[in-house]
């Protein structure tokens, strides 16, 4: 992290709206991309983004200038997304998610998909699958950590991930057939 950017953070801590705007502009795009992965639609993603940035600015003085600022903000965004997930009480598995046969996905098929299509696939997952897939496959948390974060068992976390993957593969396979 550059010294200049640290100065922007310090100014933001001191309440400078201009500095806060710079911080927001620097990270808003990536964070909104993150929020879109956790949210069901853009409205929810915007709410998560706004709640998350409010937390960022209100807790900015707790940032210790050690490690990545973006990583720190990302963590807050993930936590905020999880709070939204809990508020919505997505605690039961969706009926649509019956056992799928592993369809197998070819490299060509995946590489041919756009970010928008991949994002839409994740957003179409039921909330509990979406959140586990995001935390495990994209953020890199372990099943143990996820089980604590979501207050579910490790087995449930693994099962949700497996089902999420199968649903995604099935969708990709369908796209392949129709394409």
């Amino acid at each position: 992290m550059s010294g200049d950017f640290n100065d922007v953070i310090r100014d933001s801590i001191n309440g400078s709206r201009r500095a806060q705007r710079i911080l927001y502009n620097t990270l808003a795009g990536k964070m909104f991309g993150l929020c879109l992965r956790y949210a069901h639609d853009e409205t929810e993603a915007r709410d998560i983004l706004q709640d998350g940035f409010v937390k960022v600015f209100k807790n900015l003085e707790q940032f210790r200038f050690q490690g990545s600022f973006e990583g720190w903000v990302r963590k807050i965004m993930v936590n905020t997304a999880l709070e939204h997930f809990r508020k919505e009480s997505y605690q039961t598995a969706s009926i649509e998610d019956v056992d799928f046969q592993d369809p197998g996905v070819g490299e060509k098929v995946l590489s041919g998909l756009s970010e928008k299509e991949l994002l839409q696939m994740i957003r179409d997952l039921s909330p509990q699958y979406r959140v586990v897939f995001n935390l495990y496959a994209i953020e890199g948390y372990s099943h143990k950590e996820i089980s604590q974060m979501l207050n579910i068992s490790e087995g449930t976390s693994k099962s949700n991930l497996s089902r999420a993957r199968n649903i995604l593969k099935e969708k990709i396979k369908r796209l392949n057939k129709t394409g």
Partner: peptide, 26 residues
Amino acid sequence: HIDEVFRERLSDLNVTPPANAWDVIE
């Protein structure tokens, strides 16, 4: 493989947020 594809393509996905989002945050 499927995890990696989603991670590589979406972990740093950059999407412009709605224009009025900053006003609300501020």
